[in-house]
């Protein structure tokens, strides 16, 4: 049986702008993925715990509050702590160009900035999740 890719979409931090996350979740569903959506204002710990319980292949983080430099690396740090670095982590939101290298160094595989077509993120996931 062809198993669908499982993705967790989460919004860490305090901003309430989830339109982008929801649009992406819909696009992923339409691309045949199973998308677990955890809602707003999640702590990195809640996100990592949910990802482990749901046995997802990918965590998609969306942050528009500017706190990404703190929140995203915290997610990858907790994944490391749980021995779960095989879960692919990608991020999106209003993220300045100059922050991207340090986020990638912290284990975020790719950052998608505003204006990225959903198909780009979906293709990236399909390419990088190997089962």
């Amino acid at each position: 049986m062809e198993r669908p890719i499982r993705v967790l979409i989460a919004k860490p931090g305090l901003d309430g702008h989830d339109r982008g996350a929801k649009v992406l979740a819909r696009a992923m569903r339409d691309a045949g993925m199973e998308v677990v959506y955890t809602g707003l204002r999640q702590t990195p710990q809640q996100i990592v715990e949910a990802a482990i319980q749901e046995d997802v292949d990918v965590i998609g983080l969306s942050c528009l509050s500017g706190a990404h430099n703190h929140l995203f690396p915290e997610v990858t740090r907790l994944l490391k702590e749980q021995n779960a670095t095989d879960i692919l982590v990608i991020g999106g939101g209003i993220i300045p160009e100059e922050d991207i290298p340090s986020l990638k160094a912290a284990g975020i595989s790719e950052i998608f900035t505003p204006g990225t077509p959903t198909s780009v993120a979906i293709d990236y996931i399909k390419e990088h999740v190997t089962k």
């Binding site: 339409d30 199973e34 959506y37 999640q42």
Partner: peptide, 18 residues
């Protein structure tokens, strides 16, 4: 049609994640 799904029940229970 696509085999995809949005699994949204967890939103209501996410406070128990930890």
């Amino acid at each position: 049609f696509t085999g995809g799904a949005i699994l949204g029940d967890r939103i209501r229970m996410q406070r128990w994640a930890s």
